[in-house]
Design a protein around this nucleic acid. Structure first.
Length: 452
DNA sequence: TCTGGGGTCCTTCCGCAG
DNA sequence: TCTGCTGCGGAAGGACCC
C-alpha cells in the first residue's frame, strides 16, 4: 500500500486530500510513522523525529496513528490476496508476499500482469486506496519491484533480466542492508550491487560475518530461494514506552516496570501464549540501551511471576541519570504454562483464578473522566453538527472539522473540551457500501490452516 | 535535532557437560 | 586426572524491517 497510514487519513478526511499529511507520535519525542507523498516533497520521511518534520513542513497536518482502523483495512486487503493464492505472507499491515504459482496463476508475463492489475483494481474498489504491485520470480526481486512501482504502479521483472537490473543499484536497495551495513560496505569501497558481486563471497563473509555475508552474496547474484511462508509463529511479545521526560525517581521507574509487565502479560494471554524468558529493556538519558533477561524453569503467563522477574532484573540496572524508555518482553514462547503441567500431573484442576480476570492493572488509573482527551485526527460526533475529526486541541478547546469520507471538505468549529454535545466516534468506512450490497457472504466458510 | 513501537535474526561471549 | 574440543543454552548487544 502506498504511504498507507497517511493515505487512509486522506481518504477519511476530504480536506486533507492532496495535502501534506504526517502520521506519527505527537509528543516531544515522537517520530514519523508515515508521510504522505505531498509531505515527502519537503523532505519528511519515516522514522524522522517529529520536531524535525515540523520544521521542514510546518503547514502539514499532524495526526496520531489509528491502528484499529488501519488493521481493519489491512484485513480487507489481505482477504483479496488470499483470494489469489493460499500462500500469503504478510510482512506488516501494508505489505505481503503472494505466491501466485501456488494460487494457480500461470507464470507467463501476461497472466502475471493481469493478476497484478486486477488486484490493484480490487484494492481500489474495496478500500478506495492505491496499492503497488511488484512481480518477480523471488521475494527479494518482488520487493524491489514493488518499491519501484510506488506510488500506484505495477512493475514486473522479467526472468533473465534480474542481474542487469540489480547491478547498478545501490547496495542499500537490498533487503537487510541498512545504515550500518551500508557504511561498512562503503568503507570497503563497495557501493553497488555489481561491486558486491565482484567482491566475492569470501570477502563478504569476512566483512559482514557468515550469515549476512552468504545471504548478501546470493542476493547480489539475484539468487533468492526463500519460499513464501503463510503462517509464522510469534517468537516474542513485548511492550515499551518512551517517556516525554526522563524518569529519575527510582520508585517511579519501579512502578512503570510493573505496569509494563502487566500490559505485556495481557498481550501474552490475549494471544494464548506463555513464555520462559523475561526481558527488561532500559534506554537511558543518553540513549544507551541495555537489556537484562532471566529464564525461568518453565513458561508462565502469571502476571505476578513476570512482575517479580522484571523487578529483579531492574535491581541489576543503574538508572541514575534518568531513563527515557522502559520495556518488558517475554520470549521462549509456548502455548502452555508450567502451571498447566502441574495441573495435568495433579489430574486436572478447577478454573485458574489468575486466568479469569485479565488483571485489572492496579497502577493504570486511566485519565480522569473530567479531562477527556482529543487526539489529533480521531473521529468525533457532535449532537448538532454530526461526524467530524479532531483537528487540534489545547487550552481547554478542541477544534473539529466536520466531514466524512464521502462528503466534500468540511467546516471547522471550536468547542470547549468538556462540551457534552461532543463525543468520541468510531471511524466511518472509507468506501460506502451501496444499497443492497450486503456483507458479502462468502462460500467456503473457514480458512483452513494445517497442511504445512 | 534528537532519535517510536513491535518484532526478527545474528553474533559474541560465557559457563557447563560430555 | 588433566586437557582440549565441541556443542548447547543463556545472556547481552546490535542491525534491520515496517
Amino acid at each position: 500500500m502506498d504511504a498507507f497510514f497517511a493515505s487512509v487519513e486522506q481518504a477519511s478526511k476530504p480536506s486533507l486530500r492532496g495535502k501534506a499529511v504526517v502520521v506519527g507520535g505527537l509528543g516531544p519525542r515522537g517520530v514519523v510513522a508515515t508521510a504522505s507523498y505531498e509531505a515527502r516533497v519537503f523532505g519528511v520521511h519515516s522514522a524522522m523525529p517529529m520536531s524535525q518534520a515540523r520544521r521542514l513542513a510546518p503547514n502539514a497536518a499532524y495526526l496520531v496513528p489509528r491502528f484499529a482502523l488501519y488493521r481493519s483495512i489491512s484485513e480487507q486487503v489481505m482477504e483479496l490476496l488470499r483470494a489469489l493464492s493460499p500462500l500469503v505472507e504478510p510482512l506488516s499491515l501494508d505489505e505481503a508476499f503472494v505466491d501466485l504459482e501456488a494460487g494457480g496463476t500461470a507464470w507467463d508475463e501476461r497472466s502475471a500482469r493481469l493478476a497484478g492489475a486486477r488486484l490493484r483494481a480490487d484494492i481500489r474498489e474495496v478500500t478506495g486506496l492505491t496499492g503497488s504491485v511488484g512481480l518477480a520470480a523471488s521475494k527479494m526481486l518482488a520487493k524491489i519491484a514493488s518499491e519501484q512501482a510506488k506510488p500506484d504502479g505495477l512493475v514486473l521483472i522479467e526472468p533473465g533480466t534480474e542481474r542487469a537490473l540489480l547491478g547498478p543499484l545501490s547496495v542499500r536497495t537490498l533487503p537487510g542492508v541498512g545504515p550500518a551495513t551500508g557504511d561498512h560496505l562503503r568503507r570497503a569501497g563497495i557501493h553497488t550491487v555489481d561491486e558486491l558481486a565482484e567482491a566475492g563471497e569470501d570477502e563478504l563473509v569476512r566483512l559482514l560475518g557468515k550469515a549476512h555475508g552468504h545471504a548478501l552474496f546470493a542476493m547480489a547474484l539475484a539468487r533468492d530461494e526463500r519460499p513464501v511462508v503463510a503462517e509464522r509463529e510469534t517468537k516474542s511479545v513485548s511492550v515499551e514506552d518512551t517517556y516525554d521526560v526522563d524518569i529519575h525517581d527510582r520508585v517511579r521507574v519501579g512502578t512503570e516496570v510493573q505496569r509494563l509487565a502487566d500490559r505485556c502479560v495481557r498481550r501474552l494471554r490475549g494471544a494464548g501464549l506463555s513464555g520462559r524468558t523475561i526481558v527488561l529493556k532500559v534506554r537511558r538519558y543518553d540513549f544507551s540501551t541495555l537489556t537484562r533477561s532471566e529464564t525461568l524453569r518453565g513458561p508462565t503467563d502469571d502476571p505476578a511471576v513476570v512482575r517479580e522477574a522484571a523487578a529483579r532484573l531492574l535491581d541489576s540496572v543503574d538508572t541514575t541519570g534518568g531513563v527515557r524508555l522502559l520495556g518488558v518482553g517475554v520470549s521462549g514462547l509456548a502455548d502452555y504454562t508450567q502451571e498447566d503441567l502441574f495441573a495435568q500431573a495433579a489430574g486436572g484442576r478447577e478454573e485458574d483464578p489468575v486466568r479469569e480476570e485479565p488483571e485489572a492493572a492496579p497502577a493504570a488509573e486511566g485519565p480522569a473522566p473530567a479531562e477527556r482527551r482529543w487526539p489529533a485526527g480521531h473521529d468525533v460526533r457532535h449532537a448538532v453538527h454530526g461526524h467530524g475529526w479532531v483537528q487540534g486541541s489545547g487550552l481547554g478547546r478542541v477544534t473539529v472539522r466536520f466531514e466524512t469520507p464521502d462528503s466534500g471538505p468540511g467546516r471547522v468549529k471550536t468547542f470547549r473540551v468538556d462540551d457534552p454535545a461532543l463525543e468520541p466516534a468510531e471511524p466511518l468506512p472509507l468506501v460506502s457500501r451501496g444499497p443492497g450490497e450486503g456483507e458479502g457472504a462468502k462460500a467456503g466458510g473457514e480458512a483452513g490452516p494445517e497442511s504445512g
